[in-house]
Computed example of a mutant assay.
Amino acid sequence: MNSTPGQTTASTFDLVECSLYAEFDVRVDPIEWCPLVELDPPVDVQHQQFRDETCLIDVRTHSDEPRTIRITQECDSLCPSKVLTDAGYIPRLNEIRPERVVIGIPLGDRTEVQDVVGRLRSVAESVTLRKLVQLGTDSSAETTMDLTDLTDKQRETVTLAITRGYYRQPRHASVDDIADELDISAAAVSQRLGAAESKVMRQVFDTLADGCE
């Protein structure tokens, strides 16, 4: 992966089977055991690795006196990053708050989105997709689906739709299936998905229009 996900250019809404970059909003119980939450935000995690049950993190603080520090901490089994690392993924902490972390992760294909969400939900209160980037062979062929402008309910519904295979061909889940899992009506699911898809489609075509100027 030789590009920065936040700088990719959308070219199509159709997500084909290829390498992806995904970013997740992971809401957890207050993680007082993690020393990162004691630092004044924003905090830039430059490097993180696990050695047995020990977590080593290099972070850059952006306080009045910015500095890079190394944190060594015995890792709790509830750590979202460790759960993913133990499963063979390479997560990156993009944002850390006392009750929320944003994790970016490169994936082999769309099927891994469901696996990652399932693993994160084993240690988190909720997990929603923030961004999904299709990584092409060059930057002009990449597609970004940015979900940060959606409401929480829309993001929850889209995340579930993606992980359950609603957008696959043929579909692996129906609107009724998603409605049953969320315990809401099928009409509410359709409304949320329609509104979310409209916002995402506008992003794609706005980007295409900018590229044609």
Rank of each mutant, 00 (worst) to 15 (best):
L150I: 09
E74F: 06
L39T: 03
S122L: 07
P98Q: 01
G211I: 07
V127A: 02
S185Q: 07
T111R: 14
R92H: 13
V113L: 14
L78H: 12
P91H: 03
L78D: 12
R60A: 14
G6T: 04
E197N: 14
T148A: 13
I178C: 00
E65Y: 07
S63K: 12
S11M: 04
T137K: 04
E38P: 01
R100K: 09
A22H: 08
T12A: 13
P30V: 08
V127H: 04
D40Y: 07
A209N: 13
D40H: 08
S77Y: 06
R130F: 04
M1F: 12
S139K: 11
L160N: 00
T128S: 10
R70V: 10
R155L: 05
D52R: 07
D146M: 02
D183H: 10
D44L: 12
L39Y: 09
E213Y: 11
V113G: 08
M201Q: 15
A187Q: 11
P30N: 09
I71P: 14
I103R: 02
R70G: 13
Y89V: 04
H172T: 06
A124L: 04
E125M: 04
F24I: 06
S77A: 13
D206M: 11
P98R: 07
L120K: 03
D206Y: 14
T163P: 00
R27L: 05
E74S: 13
M1N: 11
A186T: 01
T159E: 00
P41T: 11
V189P: 03
E197G: 06
R119S: 10
Q191Y: 03
E74H: 10
T61F: 04
G165D: 00
L147Y: 14
T207P: 05
A141E: 14
L20W: 03
L107N: 13
Q154N: 15
D109W: 07
I178M: 00
R97F: 15
L93F: 02
T163R: 03
T137W: 11
V59E: 09
R130A: 03
L20E: 01
A196V: 03
